[in-house]
Amino acid sequence: MASPLHQFEVTPLVPIHIGGVDLSFTNSSAFMVAAVGAAALFFIYGSKGRALVPGRWQSLAELTYEFVAGMVRENVGQEGRKYFPAVLSLFCFILFCNLLGLLPYSFTVTSHIIVTFALAFTAFIGVTLVGIMRHGLHFFSLFVPSGVSPVLLPLLIPIEIVSYLSRPVSLSVRLFANMMAGHTMMKVFASFILPLGVFGIAPFAIDVVLTGFEFGIAIIQAYIFTVLTCLYLHDAVHLH
């Protein structure tokens, strides 16, 4: 019986080595490409008709678009408009990676800490750059809490800096842990189904419930990742 962690194994499909670095096209790469393809198909097929009264696919595409647009508008404000494509890409990438990972025998790209950390770190660096470009050195006033007595500042500023620096970590660990835990749990229950014989119906039922649950988590985690990025963007744009 395969280990519950076997599903997270990255296996090369097309070995590519450039300058001694392994850049092989793996199952992970394949699912990243599939996620991008699915997202592109979803939106392009959804906006194919450009109908005034949208059909089903167009409604879904518009709903997703408006959902992310509303998220940016509410959390960042009017200045957030130019960051909207980046936020939408982030949301779609995570969402489609999460959802594709739910297919049986598939690979979940976002169950790897390196991937979620790279996404979170990119968002973090991007947000910090936006803040510095907008406010210059004044951006660092973000670390000075307002309305606090100066005596406490030597204590509070390091705390603020640590909490700021821990943003990409918490962002990436949250997504990675959720995806990995959910998929491991499903696999653990699934591995009980056959050995238990007739009573395998119980873990099977649990897995059915968990599958529905995992769909919710796939969507919610994509949402949380994106909305937190928006909140960080708000901090960078407005400084508190």
């Binding site: 990255v10 590519i16 392994d22 850049l23 096209f25 793996t26 790469s29 490409v33 390196i114 991937v115």
Partner: peptide, 12 residues
């Protein structure tokens, strides 16, 4: 397996 994931993540 980190470099390949980072590379393909960046590309995608």
């Amino acid at each position: 397996m980190f470099p390949t994931q980072l590379f393909w993540l960046a590309v995608c």
